[in-house]
Design a protein around this nucleic acid. Structure first.
Lengths: 118, 118
DNA sequence: CATAGTGTACTAGTCACATATTACACTATG
DNA sequence: CATAGTGTAATATGTGACTAGTACACTATG
């Protein structure tokens, strides 16, 4: 496959985002098994170590559980996923507000822009 | 002064944002002279080269003009600043929308969150 | 024309990231 | 119990972004 990655962010981080997105979108279901590190490395065209880092990161976030010899699985803990959803939503909002404040825009002003966009 | 910088973004980039913000907020006026690279380096506690990079970046954005031996000045071109304002507003909005889409959130959902925040 | 204050250029060091390679540990399966 | 497929760990290497130190070039000013 050899995905294309943006250059302004580490690959491993983009992959984490991608997987989180797939979970939140429902493309990946609770309990699903992720591809093996070697498989996913080939799929995405990156090194095994990079994939390992992705899986490590996900596990640290408590959204996957890895079992030696078996694979890496999305947690079956629905609460955790729901919490993740809220966390990420909040994080996004906070970051956005911080950015607009730093640049001198008002929240109201930005809301208008957002509404008028695709 | 020794400002504190976030670690997830280059210092020079944060300084560019800061100055842009100060311009858009009116803290810096058209035609104003910025501190010299050395002055600003001391003020912020970073290296002269870092400041130079900031000024270079700003000049590339056409929002400052630098004159050897004299200093770096905010452009007097009001249109340019107004354009900058629109550009940055759009950029912020686009980035935000891209992020929320990647993570599987809807625009409407996020608008609600934003409204309910400080 | 000397001096001090500008911006600028060059070189080098550090660090995070990504890669490559190799070896190890565990588990399922025949 | 052999084998193939999992995740894990360790080491070395290359590269690019960022920062720092130092020296240079230009300009105003007395």
């Amino acid at each position: 496959m050899t995905m294309d990655f943006s250059r302004d962010k580490p690959i491993y981080s983009q992959l984490v985002d991608r997987i989180c997105g797939d979970i939140l979108k429902g493309k990946l279901q609770l309990g699903d098994r992720l591809p093996s590190v070697r498989e996913y490395a080939v799929e995405t065209g990156v090194n095994v170590n990079t994939v390992q880092r992705v899986y490590k990161e996900l596990e640290a976030m408590n959204i996957t559980e890895t079992k030696r010899g078996q694979g890496t699985f999305i947690t079956s803990n629905e609460e955790r996923i729901e919490l993740l959803r809220e966390e990420m939503k909040n994080q996004l909002a906070e970051n956005f507000l911080t950015s607009i404040e730093a640049l001198g825009f008002s929240k109201e002003e930005m809301l208008v822009v957002l509404k008028n966009k695709a």
